[in-house]
């Protein structure tokens, strides 16, 4: 709650204070200040809004598209599967990064668009993974036995296959998508032009290609190091979580 009120009370535009440009850490500014005299720690926290919400949105979109297409294609097979897989593979043939740049330039640079686009861009991967898993189960003895016990196809597909036997797989893919989204968002914001625009903070634009070129943060290196380390830490945590979920599945 304290964090929420701190974040909502922070005004990204008016925090500029030229009197304290690039100060090293102090009790008032735990991570020091940046080239415009803004508090780095607060901006770090504020910047999480740039990827947490949109990242979850991306996950939901990918789940909706990837899960349904993968499950339907895998379970029913035939022409339905061919059609759906043609759709997902043609989508997958466009590099994700290009797809996101296209979406941003056509539909706007806001994070909601970026989140939806990332979800769509990632959905073929999830779809393919779910499809492959379901195909191996479709003709398996346990599906046959479940049918013979009088269970409906829908229940076998949703409960026994998707829930009981695919949830780890889906979770791993969602974590990967979250990592992917963080990387994309910070990369775009770092390059500038796309992603999060100043004065709104993102770990990406806090690093800032332009700032790096002119050495804007030499006075307080933490202003660059903090976002770099934070990105690395989150990506590592995501990778570790994926690894644990693989281990738990053994």
């Amino acid at each position: 709650m304290w964090l929420m009120s701190l974040l909502s009370s922070y005004d990204v535009a008016s925090d500029v204070n030229v009197a304290i440009i690039s100060q090293p850490p102090s009790p008032e500014h735990l991570l020091g200040t940046d080239k415009l005299g803004r508090d780095v720690a607060l901006r770090m926290l504020h910047a999480t809004q740039a990827f947490v919400g949109p990242g979850i949105l991306a996950a939901l979109v990918a789940l909706m598209i990837g899960l349904s297409t993968g499950a339907i294609a895998g379970w029913y097979g035939g022409h339905v599967a061919s059609g759906l897989r043609l759709m997902t593979t043609s989508l997958a043939s466009i590099p994700r990064f290009v797809l996101l740049l296209l979406a941003s330039s056509i539909y706007g640079r806001d994070l909601t668009t970026l989140g939806i686009a990332a979800g769509i861009a990632y959905s073929p991967t999830l779809s393919e993974a779910v499809y492959a898993r379901i195909v191996t189960f479709r003709d398996s003895g346990f599906v046959l036995a479940a049918k013979a016990h009088g269970l409906s196809s829908l229940r076998i597909l949703t409960y026994h296959i998707l829930w009981s036997n695919c949830k780890e797989l889906i979770w791993r893919n969602i974590l990967a998508l979250f990592g992917f989204f963080l990387l994309i968002e910070t990369t775009l914001s770092c390059i500038g032009g796309f992603g999060v625009q100043e004065p709104d903070p993102s770990w990406g634009n806090m690093i800032g290609i332009g700032d790096l070129q002119i050495g804007a943060n030499t006075g307080n290196p933490l202003a660059t190091w903090a976002p770099v380390l934070a990105i690395w830490l989150v990506l590592t945590a995501v990778a570790a979580a994926r690894g644990t979920s693989v281990e738990a599945n053994r």
Partner: peptide, 16 residues
């Protein structure tokens, strides 16, 4: 009518 298949292990939900 119930069914008892030859591949008994393969007929059980592997993660239940």
């Amino acid at each position: 009518i119930g069914y008892l298949p030859q591949d008994a292990r393969g007929s059980l939900d592997p993660l239940m």
